[in-house]
Amino acid sequence: MLRVENLCTHFHSKGKTIRAVDGVSLSVDRGEILGLVGESGCGKSTLSRTIMQLIPPTSGKIFLEDRDLSGLTPKEIRRERLNFQMVFQDPYASLNPRMTVFSALAEALRRRHPNLAKDDLSREVGTLMEKVGLAARFMKKYPHEFSGGQRQRIAIARALAPEPRLIIADEPVSALDVSIQSQIINLLMNLVRELDLTMLFISHDLSVVHYIADRIAVMQQGRLVEIGSADQVMHEPEHDYTKTLLEAIPRVAEHI
C-alpha cells in the first residue's frame, strides 16, 4: 500500500544541516495500522508531512499502491492527495474557524465528487457526521462551538470525506483527555476496519500505540531503530533505545 524507500528530509538553517528524516525505509500493508513512536524532535512529524507531500523530500522515494509520488507534477500531486489524508494533533488548530462543519466537509467531499448536487451534499455530510459519532443537526455550527473531542471527530470526518485509502494520524489523541482519548481511539480503529483503510499512527505514547497498532516502528534522531510486531516491540524490544522508552513509561499496573 505505502512504501517509503530511503527517505531523507534535510533542512538548512544558519549554515547547519538538520537531518530531520535520515534514510527511512518502511512499508505499510493494506488494512494495516503501523504505529510510529518517538520522542519530540525525532523526526516523526517531518516524516509524516514528507509522505503527505507537504514538505519536499531531499532524496528517496514514496510509493502509494506502487505509484511513485516523487515523479508527479504539482497538479497530479493535488489529485493524488485525495488518496491519503491526515488527522492532526491539535483539533483547535486543524479546523478553519470561519467555516461551518457543513462547508468544511462539503469542500472535502467535492474534491472527490465535484458534481454533487446540493441536496446530495447535505445527505453526504450528514452521513459522514453520523459515521464519526456526531449528530447531523450540528452541521451548521462552527468549530468553536464544539469540544476538543468533537472537533477531532470533525477533523476525522474531513479526512474521510475524499474517500482516502491511507490515513496518517499525527498524535491524534495526545491533546485530548483520557476519557475522550479512548472514544477517539475506538472510533479510529472501527473506521479502519469498516472502511478497509490503512493507517500510519504517530504518537509519543507507546501504550496507546501498542494498543492500536499491528506493527510498531521506533524512530530516534531521524532514523528507524526498530520495527516489529506490536507485541514484540512492547515485550521483547531489541534496540536499547526502545528499552529506555519502555522503562520510562509510568505504569499504573504496579499497584494492581
Binding site: V178, S179, Q181, S182, Q183, I185, N186, M189, S207, V208, H210, Y211, I212, A230, D231, I249, R251, V252, A253, H255, I256
Partner: peptide
Amino acid sequence: FSAPEHPYTRALQRSIPAIQEKGEPLYTI
C-alpha cells in the same frame, strides 16, 4: 487503584490503553 470506590475513577482507569487487552474495544466513558 486496587479498589476504586467511585464509578468515575474506575472508568478513568479502564480507559487507559496500557491496562487493556489488545484487540478488545477500549473502555470508554
